[in-house]
Nucleic acid binder design. Structure first.
Lengths: 184, 184
DNA sequence: AAATATAGATTGAATGTTCATTCGGTTTTA
DNA sequence: TAAAACCGAATGAACATTCAATCTATATTT
């Protein structure tokens, strides 16, 4: 059943957010998700496999969200803005994701993890378009996209971790700053 | 003896970098550092206390490095550039710090952790200077400094995690992009 | 200068707890 | 009625931490 799997994912996000990567045990997780410990192992081979599956699930949802909201008829600047806000909103809607995601991508698990390339390529391709159109500065698109993604994460960390009050006009300021730096 | 303490810190960085935050046990750490398990508990109350002390040690070293390299006679742009490069170089010189640092600041440990404010204030104050001088855009300096720090971290992650080749001219490009976004 | 005392540093085997994982059995679903 | 989903107590390994004993270095006494 998909519901139990999702309950496990949701609980994992909540518990990891609160107790950290370590600090979250499988029995805790089972209890919180309302399933037996054995059930988790019916769906996932191990704790590590569950965590990797959760990460994949999140990345898939984010990429889908980005793809459906993208509109090639808009100007590149508008697409840039939309993309930035899409990632931001994704996390606002799922406030437990950020900590999990950041813990995961900074863990040695992540090294040699295939999903990594997918999201990287997705962003690089977008900025390559901008470079080809002569709008974005002609620098390594991997670099550009890394800084772009990083600026969303920075903003989210300020909001979630540091409780810096960020309103809609602040968001536009941040996006503008990022844009100004990247255009020719 | 200070050497044993430093050996424990160095080993912790190395092991956490390789095996993650969890995945690094105290017996492993003791063995790697060439001390007995009990010795670690002579210096630190617990594993968590050791990790917090390690973080404090790193932040202190970074702030000292920033303070000694700062020169108020230089132009604000030059100071901006120097500051960016100082953080970058700090990590290049200590390649095991980044993973540990990022794991730590994204863990729930970090919430309500006094050292956090110190580094935040240090950066905010710098950008407040720039704003007062009419050089930096008049936005919340916490926001500005968060994005500044974030851009260094993004660059470092690309270098260390994604093995993106970043040379000296790339660094200047990244700093330039960041600068262009932040000036009036 | 030698002998002794003292405190702090260091050891590592022992402890009790917690953990990820298993598996024989039960319930649900198709 | 068979297969798949689910349960949760049981298991053994790994873990953080402790502590009584030993060592080291320095201070104090003879």
């Amino acid at each position: 059943m998909v519901e139990k799997k999702q309950a496990i994912f949701d609980s994992a996000l909540e518990l990891i957010n609160e107790c950290g990567f370590h600090g979250t045990s499988m029995s805790q997780l089972a209890k919180h998700a309302g399933v037996a410990a054995g059930t988790i192992y019916h769906y996932f081979e191990s704790k590590e496999a569950m965590i990797c599956a959760l990460h994949t699930d999140i990345v898939d949802k984010l990429l889908e969200s980005l793809t459906t909201s993208d509109d090639k008829n808009l100007s590149f600047k508008e697409r840039f803005e939309k993309r930035w806000k899409c990632i931001y909103q994704f996390h606002i809607d799922r406030p437990h994701v950020l900590r999990f995601y950041e813990q995961f991508v900074n863990s040695p698990f992540y090294f040699n993890y295939p999903k990594r390339k997918e999201i990287q390529l997705y962003f690089s391709a977008f900025f390559q378009e901008g470079i080809s159109q002569g709008i974005i500065i002609d620098k390594n698109p991997e670099l550009i996209s890394g800084l772009f993604f990083g600026s969303v994460i920075s903003a989210l960390k300020m909001k979630f971790y540091r409780k810096v009050d960020i309103d809609g006009s602040d968001l536009n300021d941040i996006i503008d700053m990022q844009w100004k730096g990247m255009i020719i």
